[in-house]
Design a protein around this nucleic acid. Structure first.
Lengths: 221, 221
DNA sequence: ACCTGAACACCGTTCAAGT
DNA sequence: ACCTGAACACCGTTCAAGT
């Protein structure tokens, strides 16, 4: 009943199709929702078929992550100064992981793999343009910071989803717990618990990036 | 055959015993090695018994993490200046996660829970002593950076273990892959691939901490 | 070359039954 | 109150058999 066109193989499974379907499922139902069974059902095929195009689940996750990272980084336009470009890259990544929380875990757990290499490359190029003396220290600090924030944010989102809360309700619950801590043992945390709900993760993130950029520039003035 | 002493319940299972056994298993065989079955065998009991003392696996992981974090932070002695104390806390955490790689994942994925609160508290207190203007920005940047680096390092260690490599062999393999990248598309990454094997994660980490601390201090001189 | 789908090994969690 | 261990649901991966 099937017609396989000569060069298109239009009806058969392709690696790209699989990855695209995986991204959809991950976006819809998180990392826990991506199952070979669910994927097979969506692709109208058997679970085993996927293994012909993909090595295993790790391979699939990394590839899905890489596709999204490529698109995200590609959308960042170069700014007048390298500092501003770094900010733009950071913000793009922040927003990207905010809308695809599953990427936080994947990115943080696949050291040296392509998605991370792309980020490293872009930041490294900009830092090199600035001409920082301790180049590697600056680049690795920026990368770690970005991945750290992204991971935290993703964890928040995933936890909130798991328990059926939205972001502000979730922060509210954390603030409540923190407010109940012993103020003698935890003076700092209990003092900021009330400010937790109203703070802006995105602004905080940018402030951190600026802190790091400022620190690596030669002392001005 | 068993004697249960009146107040000790010496022979019965306790939550602390379970957590301690879990830490041992995690240290020996990583996150993948911690199974309710393995845990039950080590404790000479049934898998179901553990659920009487522990809510679920997440609860167990967080508690295990918290115990180790508590010990680690407790071992840090206060230094003459808050800057030095922050460095000491950072280093202690770095070394801690280096020897207990499983903690990287747990810490990064349990936002607002006790282990993170303890770290936040300690850093927050020191930053408050310094009297930084943008207090929260500084604290959250430090925390994210520390968790980010720790997570990366843990991921390295876990990946290396999974594939039966030691650290330097693992870095060597990553360097090889990076060196094969197209130098036109990835000029930065391929240029640093040769330096990858010889760099010192711990020193890089400290450099990043110093960068952040320097940035939050008022401009000197 | 590529797909099917049953089978396997494994794992977190539950629960009726015990003490 | 606390433990036992079989049972359940689920999931990644494999593989003999198909086309």
């Amino acid at each position: 009943m099937r017609k396989a066109s000569r060069l298109g193989k239009r009806n058969s499974l392709s690696r790209d199709q699989i990855i695209e379907a995986a991204i959809s499922i991950l976006d819809e139902s998180g990392k826990g929702g991506l199952t070979f069974q669910a994927l097979a059902t969506r692709l109208a095929t058997g679970a085993g078929a996927i293994y012909w195009h993909v090595e295993n689940k790790d391979d699939l996750l990394i590839s899905a992550c890489d596709v999204v990272i490529q698109r995200t980084l590609h959308s960042v336009v170069e700014r007048p100064t390298p500092e501003e470009t770094i900010r733009a890259v950071g913000l793009a990544l922040f927003d990207c992981i905010d809308t695809h929380p599953w990427m936080g875990t994947v990115l943080a757990q696949t050291p040296g793999k392509m998605p991370m290499v792309r980020i490293l490359e872009l930041i490294g190029q900009q830092v090199r343009v600035i001409g920082v003396v301790e180049e590697w220290a600056a680049v690795s600090a920026l990368l770690s910071y970005i991945l750290g924030v992204a991971g935290q944010n993703a964890a928040n989102a995933q936890f909130a989803r798991k328990h059926g809360l939205d972001r502000s309700r979730f922060l509210g619950e954390v603030a409540d717990v923190w407010a109940c801590l012993d103020a003698t043992a935890f003076p700092f945390v209990s003092s900021i618990s009330c400010k937790l709900a109203e703070h802006d993760d995105r602004a905080d993130f940018l402030a951190g990036i600026d802190l790091l950029i400022r620190a690596m520039l030669p002392v001005k003035r």
